[in-house]
Design a protein around this nucleic acid. Structure first.
Length: 677
DNA sequence: ATGTTTAATCTTTTT
DNA sequence: GATTAAACAT
């Protein structure tokens, strides 16, 4: 495709974003304005202008986004050429860099990635060692530390900056935490960014190498970048600064996770000569929905905002409906009935519907009712596969195999299944480690150490270690991973021990099935990859894999209603959307309001509204079960922002009766508009 | 050392 | 209401 052909397929603003390849560019892409299209076409445009594919780097937040872009790019240009463009998440980019360079910082290249529960466990230990008592507020301190790491604040700096006693303690715990991680050759998610930053800073020649390689940078969902990501991007862009960021400040909903909206608000100030392009034509929703969305987003208290006014050429459409039900059960019932009715009337499929909610627990009632009503559904996120105990246990075995210094994993697998190693032996291991005699893994391997343990403990340790020793050379060879893992998990006694761990026979069978599924996921990984993989490579991919990505293939195929949190729905779209529990304290969430996140809650509602293409139903109840007790509820303030002018209230029964008539009326109105023009 | 009961906690969660 | 860790008993 030539440049001209590419530009012909875009609107003028999109074209401007695509054809400005040099210098800093900020693309403010409102909801549904063709953001992904702009990014992929921009890359295609650059390629057709002769820019080498190897020098283009695109950063996303999710693997899903990266994969989608790869796929769409492969449709635009020669797939072989598309493959040579680097498209990946921040973390996968940093992960690859660290495997090559982390030796410089004293870590081993086979480091494993600490997940959230590892982090919490290690932090508790760190706080203990730093002298924090049992009354020390762990989770608050952990959050503080997380904030520091997001902003690339080192332990030394944190301690210097500390303004009160609590922060001093948290800083001390932070320092200890980093020591413990390094000792175990572990890297947490924040470290992946932070250690990359350290390498760039301490080894300018490495930074220079990457700058020379990646001369054209693009960042997706830029409103969600944190301080660390901003700094990395800025470093890589350097003087050349061919940096194009795409995002929407109105959809900034991850500040609680360290995202800094300031990055997108101040981009033009930080990067002089920035070309700002606003995309305001929405290709997703009808105007009735956009009007409601515009009302929600413009009524806020955010003084700092890139103003945008979305418009659509898709006609007026149906006015959003506000429906009040008695309780959660009625609400779910009503949705089930309306889905069946609308499906018949519109002759559409279940997958055209989505039900959105603020917090995961709200899905329970829905699941129950939809199951009872035989409405097929698919849940996004929810209880996550890799969070399940049996999977985490299985992973602990593999992680320890890959990184023997990982005490966290070692402690986890010692008691699953029980093998005679209990509290006494564990405390011996901990003191061995504290005395600096070596890692826990080495302790278990030492006859001297084992001699001090009880008979059964020593025996258990010896058997376990002999299996590890036997499999070590096998795992050093790449390829045949799933078979080796299955064999390894059997030999170590983990799989045979499942019945022992889970007494309930049905439970044990289910867990066993999950472990089997886990092993088949490994073989799928190998298959997809094409070339023989090592265990370390698999574990990294596994840690960086988002949950939604390992949905069952069969699940993805089936026609089903989508159930999801609003957060997880970002970037998705559905013809018909329900938002449930529009009640004060739930949406907006009380705790978010307490923490000063009123504007973010509103933006979250904006995200919810803009998921709908044609029909939007906002539901609330008079009574709701909260944590097991019935509670009277008040309508969400968000409803008041749109009720009357942009949405109409209906009783559930009237709506079920009249929805058909309204659809016809809307069709006639559209036809009329069309005839007029 | 391991199995059982009680108490505490509960927003969102791209990596 | 449901899940999970810490205290308690076997």
């Amino acid at each position: 495709m030539t440049c001209q052909e590419i530009l012909k397929q875009l609107n003028p603003e999109q074209g401007e974003a695509v054809s400005t390849t040099e210098g800093p560019v900020l693309v403010l892409a409102g909801a549904g304005t063709g953001k992904t299209r702009v990014i992929t076409f921009r890359i295609a445009y650059m390629l057709s202008r002769g820019i080498p594919a190897e020098s283009i780097l695109g950063m996303t937040f999710t693997n899903k986004a990266a994969r989608e872009m790869k796929e769409r790019l492969a449709q635009l240009v020669d797939p072989k050429l598309a493959e040579r463009v680097t498209l990946g998440t921040f973390h996968s980019f940093c992960g690859k860099l660290l495997r090559r360079e982390i030796k410089k910082l004293g870590y081993l290249p086979n480091f494993t990635i600490a997940d959230e529960s590892d982090q919490l466990g290690i932090f508790k230990q760190a706080a203990g060692e730093a002298g924090c008592g049992s009354d020390f507020p762990f989770s608050a301190a952990f959050n503080i530390m997380s904030g520091w790491k997001n902003r690339l604040i080192t332990p030394e700096k944190a301690r210097k900056m500390a303004g009160n006693q609590f922060e001093v303690m948290a800083g001390a715990a932070y320092g200890k935490y980093q020591e413990l991680l390094e000792l175990q050759n572990l890297v947490d998610f924040d470290d992946m960014l932070m250690l990359t930053w350290r390498i760039f800073k301490e080894y300018p020649e490495v930074l220079e190498k990457y700058r020379e390689r990646y001369r054209y940078l693009m960042v997706d969902e830029y409103q969600d970048t944190n301080g660390a990501q901003f700094t990395l991007v800025k470093m890589l862009a350097g003087e050349r600064c061919n940096l194009c960021v795409v995002g929407d400040d109105d959809q900034s909903i991850y500040s609680w996770r360290g995202a800094d909206v300031g990055n997108i608000l101040d981009f033009p100030k930080i990067f002089k000569g920035t070309k700002v392009v606003k995309l305001e034509q929405n290709y997703r929703s009808c105007n009735a929905i956009l009007n409601a969305a515009n009302a929600v987003i413009s009524q806020g208290g955010d003084s700092r905002r890139h103003t945008k006014q979305l418009w659509s050429a898709l006609g007026e459409g149906r006015t959003p409906e506000i429906i009040t039900l008695n309780n959660g059960e009625d609400e779910a019932d009503f949705i089930a009935r309306l889905i069946e009715q609308r499906k018949r009337e519109r002759n559409c499929s279940y997958s055209d519907f989505a039900i959105l909610y603020r917090s995961n627990q709200l899905s329970r009632q829905l699941e129950q009712t939809l199951r009872g009503a035989n409405v097929p559904y698919r849940m996004v996120g929810g209880q996550q596969f890799f969070q399940r105990r049996e999977i985490k246990d299985a992973l602990a075995y593999l992680k320890l195999m890959s990184n023997p210094l990982d005490d966290q994993s070692l402690l986890r697998l010692l008691s699953s299944p029980p093998r005679g190693i209990g509290a006494k032996a564990v405390s011996d291991l901990k003191s061995y480690r504290l005395e600096g005699r070596g890692s826990m893994f080495e302790a278990l391997n030492s006859g001297e150490f084992r001699a001090k343990l009880s008979r059964p403990a020593a025996k258990g340790a010896e058997e376990l270690m002999s299996v590890f020793a036997r499999f070590k050379p096998l795992f050093e060879q790449p390829g045949g991973l799933s078979g080796k893992c299955a064999e390894f998990l059997k030999e170590t006694g983990y799989i045979p021990g499942l019945q022992k761990i889970y007494k309930d026979i049905d439970d044990a069978v289910k867990r066993r099935d999950n472990v089997d599924e886990f092993i088949s996921a490994i073989s799928q990984f190998e298959l997809k990859r094409g070339e023989p993989a090592t265990l370390t490579e698999y574990l990294e991919a596994c840690s960086l894999l988002e949950e939604s990505e390992r949905e069952d293939e069969a699940d993805e195929e089936k026609d089903a209603v989508t159930l999801t949190t609003v957060h997880a729905a970002k970037g998705l779209e559905y013809p018909i959307v329900f938002v449930i529990a529009m009640e004060h304290g739930i949406f907006p969430h009380e705790r978010a309001l307490d923490e000063g996140g009123a504007d973010e809650e509103r933006r979250l509602f904006y995200v919810a509204v803009t998921r709908a293409k044609e029909e939007l139903y906002l539901l609330r109840t008079r009574m709701r079960m909260v944590r097991g007790v019935m509670h009277p509820s008040r309508p969400s303030g968000f409803l008041g922002m749109i009720d009357g002018e942009f949405a109409k209230s209906q009783t559930p029964d009237d709506l079920l009766k009249t929805v058909d008539r309204d659809t016809l009326a809307a069709k006639f109105a559209e036809l009329y508009e069309f005839m007029k023009s």
